[in-house]
Nucleic acid binder design. Structure first.
Lengths: 191, 191
DNA sequence: GTCTATAGGGTGATAGAC
DNA sequence: GTCTATCACCCTATAGAC
């Protein structure tokens, strides 16, 4: 049985991703986490505290993910693109938390803290990609492609049917100086 | 003096982009548009109608922008990337409307209509890029890079200081089959 | 056409029992 | 630690004056 605190954060993430910030009320979060509203407010004294808790989780997971990017067996770009694509995130990984936090990055007062946390995540991702790619512009392009995929997930727009992440990666690999050996048997790029 | 209807939509966009959907209440929109709440509700009978009005504007502007992409003097990619970068959108252009609509793309009932409108925009952009680039995967990469820049604008994350849109475009141009002649005197890529 | 006033529903937060 | 009950507030939408 996982702790109530984590269940609450999981529920908050799920509601933010699936139904947006307007539906992620304290009542709805408590219900989804199977806690009473009072129980929720025992763990997180206010809605701001709930947001702060989610940001803390984001920072933890982002740091762990930066390591995962650096040590990914098929290379940083492969890992980053795959985890950015719709459905690519693991439960418990950064991706879900990141997508949830994106939805509360508004211009409000607490939104400021959210944006600062996101800036840190972006910088960590970039550094991890840069560590493998050396070329700053190339690292940036790789990150932007991944971020574009995040935006697709965010809006729920399906990927064009004739385009696959494998094809995307195969093409990007062409532009990269030299990714670590082997690979996972990607299809050859037909173009 | 522009019509009240357009002023209301402008104000709604501004609030969505600057302070998020939670702050874009009818009161706030009316105040920002310098109309009374009753006056606002005369033009848009409900909040849903306001959203619908914004989606209509998005569709109009997206169609116009797809043409602009196709006829851009420095090429489709140049145009798309530049208008996607933070600060690249013109007032009255798609970019602002698009960024505003992104914020209301939740999983609610009206959110469904929002997501469908966004899917149309994405498809139109892709087709316009594809028309110039021929290669589908390349068109997709160009679009994703632009979308990554949108995500940066959305979260307010500043671009890494050593990275400029000009450098990004110079590098991407290398990968493109052959962009229309001339260009705007872009700096040579130092790498 | 544009406004004021108000009804009705929902949200965040507190108090206090167990 | 977790729950129920309740308050004060804000938001959407309507009714009706001008």
């Amino acid at each position: 049985m996982t702790g109530a605190r984590d269940r609450v954060l999981d529920a908050y993430e799920t509601l933010l991703i699936g139904h947006g910030p307007g539906s992620a009320t304290l009542d709805a979060v408590a219900a989804a986490a199977e806690v009473s509203k009072g129980g929720l407010l025992y763990h997180f004294a206010s809605k701001d505290a709930l947001v702060t808790g989610l940001l803390d989780r984001l920072r933890e997971r982002s740091a762990a993910d930066a390591d995962a990017i650096r040590t990914a067996p098929d290379g940083a770009v492969d890992y980053y693109i795959r985890t950015s694509a719709p459905g690519g995130g693991q439960p418990g990984g950064v991706t879900r938390t990141y997508l949830a936090v994106l939805r509360i990055a508004d211009g409000s007062e607490t939104g400021q803290a959210v944006r600062e946390a996101l800036a840190v995540v972006h910088a960590e991702e970039y550094d991890a990609l840069h560590a493998e790619l050396a070329d700053p512009v190339l690292a940036w392009i790789a990150q932007l492609v991944g971020d574009g995929l995040y935006l697709r997930t965010l809006t729920g727009t399906p990927l064009p049917t004739e385009l696959t992440v494998d094809a995307l990666l195969a093409r990007m690999r062409r532009y990269l100086p030299d990714t670590p050996a082997g690979g996972r048997g990607l299809p050859e790029d037909p173009a």
